[in-house]
């Protein structure tokens, strides 16, 4: 099933595939870098107790380069979490290969950090010891680990909270600490599964800015899952669009919005064209899943208010 041909793009918008000169140059530089992550023919089939099978992923191919920011979007249930969990080594794959920096992935490893959707800081450790945790697990002495953790806390601007416990932090701060904790092990790839979806709009915008700031400063490749399409366009170099049942690659979009990004860009033609393309790719299937798209069908709702007492 390929994308429907009759997608109406906004008339004034440019094609999302046309890139201005700096953007094209950036992508060329990006693709010249080493391959950070290579996924070939990745498939995942879940079997439940009765033997029924769910094809969560099928034939995913993907190559990302060092210091790329990749976003993964797709309708609910298309296998985004499964994908990133396989990359992290938390889930086994049914077919295909995944390699990070040329090394095949088998099980979780320190070369891939992960930030989860829920809060996963260890509640019994202070913020500093949470950040130091990965270093200690990888053989650093507690003293060295804590000194390095303090530096990471300075980077995310939370050194004042070094001795606080996670339950004393706001949601945004917790996720910042979680990012620092994952980065402290110096992974090649940072995997993030809807890390900001529990936050309110303002904190989310702030967190996006933080993340971009961190990404600019250190040598890290980011795979970022989101269901917020604006977030994807704001953050990503490229956006991997998956489709559901089975989860396959729908399209890999190179975002034509120039960097550095800023909030005002959400009105530029490149941004809107990309956003429109994502809408077109993702929304039809969601409308199908969640009920009738045309309001004519809503007439079947029994009227409970008096005639004449209209609100619209």
């Amino acid at each position: 099933m390929s994308a429907p041909a009759a997608i109406a793009l906004p008339v004034e918008a440019c094609d999302y595939r046309t890139q201005c000169e700096p953007v094209r140059a950036r992508f060329e530089r990006l693709k010249a870098r080493d391959v950070a992550l290579r996924v070939e023919g990745l498939g995942k089939v879940f079997r439940n107790a009765e033997g029924a099978e769910t094809v969560a992923l099928r034939g995913i191919d993907l190559v990302t380069h060092r210091r790329e920011f990749l976003c993964v979007v797709g309708p609910s249930g298309c296998g985004k979490s499964t994908f990133v969990r396989i990359l992290a080594g938390l889930e086994t794959k049914s077919s295909g290969t995944v390699s990070v920096g040329g090394v095949p992935v088998s099980g979780p490893g320190a070369d891939r950090g992960m930030v989860f959707q829920g809060y996963t800081l260890f509640p019994w450790l202070t913020v500093k010891r949470n950040v130091a945790f990965g270093l200690e697990e990888n053989g650093e002495s507690r003293h060295v680990a804590e000194r390095e953790a303090a530096q990471w806390l300075a980077l995310i601007g939370l050194e004042r909270f070094a001795d606080a416990y996670p339950h004393q932090l706001s949601g945004g701060m917790k996720q910042r600490v979680a990012i620092a904790r994952a980065l402290a092990m110096r992974p090649r790839i940072l995997l993030m599964d809807e890390p900001f979806s529990a936050l309110d709009t303002q904190s989310r915008a702030r967190m996006q800015a933080y993340l971009i700031e961190i990404w600019r400063k250190i040598d890290i490749t980011i795979v970022f899952i989101t269901h917020d399409l604006d977030e994807a366009v704001t953050l990503a170099d490229r956006i991997l669009v998956l489709k559901a049942h089975p989860g396959e690659v729908e399209e890999l979009i190179e975002v034509p919005v120039p960097r550095p990004r800023h909030p005002g860009q959400s009105l530029t033609p490149e941004f809107r064209a990309t956003r429109a393309r994502l809408d077109a790719l993702i929304h039809p299937s969601e409308a199908e899943a969640d009920g009738p798209a045309d309001l004519g069908g809503l007439d079947m709702v029994t009227r409970m208010a008096s005639v004449g007492d209209e609100v619209e």
Binding site: P108, F122, E137, N138, A182
Partner: peptide, 20 residues
């Protein structure tokens, strides 16, 4: 999720039990 977070940070076996 706590266990998985620890796994991605390299905790294994008895250390995972003891520390997480």
């Amino acid at each position: 999720l706590l266990v998985e977070a620890a796994l991605t940070m390299g905790s294994r076996n008895l250390r995972l039990i003891r520390r997480v």
